[in-house]
């Protein structure tokens, strides 16, 4: 299991090379989130986080996924700082014996880190810093299925 909170970019391919092999996994699922521009006027996202609490929260969520789906391995990488449109923000990877567990665990990780990991996003537009992104009710509701 590996958790990383970092400003630097990550290499998704390098992260999953040989991933899960040691744990006799039969399935690997990856998800990567990318900065998108819905308005045509956004240049970047700025992500603030709570150093210390972020690592603890991600570790707890990943440990729960490892135990609940008997994962062979799990990686969570989340960036902070200024990220341009098109840049990757975060990734999760899960390795399990079967695909259902790997998919479910990846979705669980995503749902939880969206509303339980202390990150805050602000849009940076062509005219400078804009609004903080509001949390969505649907993100909170997504936790209920777990």
């Amino acid at each position: 299991m590996r958790i990383s909170v970092q400003e630097a970019p990550f290499d998704l391919g390098a992260e999953i090379a040989g991933f899960g092999a040691a744990g006799n996994a039969g399935a690997v699922v990856t998800f990567s989130g990318i900065v998108r521009d819905d308005t045509g006027r956004m240049v970047a996202l700025e992500l603030e986080h709570y150093p210390g609490m972020t690592e603890k929260a991600l570790t707890r969520i990943a440990e729960e996924a490892m135990a609940r789906w008997s994962l062979a391995d799990c990686v969570v990488i989340h960036r902070y700082g200024r990220l341009a449109v098109g840049e990757p923000i975060m990734m999760v990877a899960t390795a399990a014996r079967h695909r259902k567990a790997a998919f479910e665990a990846a979705e669980f990780l995503m749902d939880y880190l969206k509303s339980r990991a202390p990150f805050w996003k602000r849009e940076i537009g062509v005219d400078g810093p804009g609004d903080w992104v509001d949390a969505k009710d649907t993100d909170e509701a997504a936790l209920n299925r777990w």
Partner: peptide, 26 residues
Amino acid sequence: DQELSDFDAPLAGVREVAFFPPMTGG
């Protein structure tokens, strides 16, 4: 102390209190 809590929680023994908006990770 870096654990999510609520407004009714007691402060006895607490070293760090953090206030922030709902989180928007992912």
